[in-house]
Amino acid sequence: MMKEASVKDLQKQCIELKKKVISMIHKAQSGHPGGSLSAADFVTALYFREMNLDPKNPKWEDRDRFVLSKGHVCPIQYAALATRGFFDEAVLDTLRQEGSILQGHPDMKKCPGIDISTGSLGQGFACGVGMGIAAKADRKDYRVFVVLGDGECQEGEIWEAAQTANKYQLDNLVVFVDNNNLQLDGTTDEVMPNINLGKKFEAFGFETFDVDGHNMEEILAVLDKARVSRNGKPKCIFAHTVKGKGVSFMENQCGWHGVAPNDEQYTQAMKELDEQLAALA
């Protein structure tokens, strides 16, 4: 853990990561900015404070695991990994290019720091559960952090995995739900209402925490609680988020699910993020 990072440090780091996300998607002219931005705050908290990692030894056996079940938002994970030193930041410019370690969806065989390949929605969670079971079986202390999209929770396998986490009492498992209320074809309410999504996790035996997914202080407080709560219950941090958060014209627009900004939009987005950085200085 990198506990020395202050709330303000993390807020700044989050904006720096968002800038990298916008840059790499702009450069690639392909990728998923909306969900990358909604997940940015808690991904920052995980990579720059909470998780126990060794960038020089990405396969370290006792590391915490990170499973990006909503694999399409990998730009935010790539930005975090590069900034933590898992690979050179210049590599970010190769996103989605032929031969790149930064595939369109995370590839554990190519990119250091990726603990499981994901991309097909609904599947990463079960892998995280398998990792949590292995940790318990080996009596190891590492934890597993899983990021789910709210749209992704429409997949049945999510609930198969949830019941398994409950059965094996995986209190070493922390699931973030990036509840941004949007999916590719529209709002979750239009496409398939996620009725009482947070309550569902509770009903599946999870200890659940509601959090403003863009309030760093709240995120850190909830991570502190989840860390010490070894009560046999898996944790669900239900993060209320805004898709596209931090770039005005992307916020709450499902059209920005998987579209790259053009030059003008790129300049505007970077300007807004720089202003947010300046305001924190």
């Binding site: 056996e61 695991r65 499973v67 554990m108 603990d115 499981i116 599947q123 990463g124 969670f125 079960a126 892998c127 995280g128 559960v129 398998g130 990792m131 949590g132 079971i133 292995a134 940790a135 079986a137 080996d138 049945g156 396998e157 198969e160 995995a161 019941q163 398994t164 059965k167 094996y168």
Partner: peptide
């Protein structure tokens, strides 16, 4: 019993759980 896991009538999940175990060095 310590090497045995029954994940219920949930085959898709079983494949994922096994994959996660394999990343931690198990042979499921």
């Amino acid at each position: 019993p310590e090497q045995y896991f029954n994940v219920g009538i949930a085959e898709q999940n079983a494949a994922g759980v096994a994959a996660g175990m394999a990343t931690c060095g198990k042979i499921p």
